[in-house]
């Protein structure tokens, strides 16, 4: 399946991942991805018919918290690292 990584696919993945690859970097990424996929394609040799996908290795269930307010106003601490902020809010380029 590694041959799936053509120009369009690379463009598509970079939209999904919000990465911008240019020129040489793009070529390198394509060749790296091809190699990585060639490698992981090895899994196709493994017969997994009837095998359940294993999501969690340590069997745990029903980890809950009770519905009690435990946090106070921590706005300044949360906003401290924001690259751009205004009036207690995070600031980004207009979204539409």
């Amino acid at each position: 399946m590694a041959d799936k990584i053509d120009e369009n696919m690379l463009e598509y993945i970079s939209i999904l991942a919000k990465l911008e690859l240019e020129g040489e970097e793009k070529e390198q990424a394509r060749s790296d991805m091809k190699k990585m996929l060639d490698h992981v394609d090895k899994l196709n040799e493994l017969d997994t018919d009837g095998v359940e996908p294993l999501v969690q290795v340590i069997n745990m269930q029903n980890v809950f918290r009770e519905d009690n307010v435990t946090n106070g106003d921590d706005r300044n601490a949360m906003l401290k690292n924001a690259p751009a902020k205004k009036n207690g809010q995070y600031m980004v380029p207009k979204t539409f």
Binding site: L16, M33, L37
Partner: peptide, 27 residues
């Protein structure tokens, strides 16, 4: 590299072949 690979194996049409397959291999 890894973000690209990870985005690909979860993307529409490849989830079963890669991600789900890996979870089965893990089992």
């Amino acid at each position: 590299r890894r973000i690209m690979l990870g985005s690909f194996v979860l993307s529409s049409g490849y989830y079963d072949a890669y991600y789900l397959k890996a979870l089965k291999a893990k089992n």
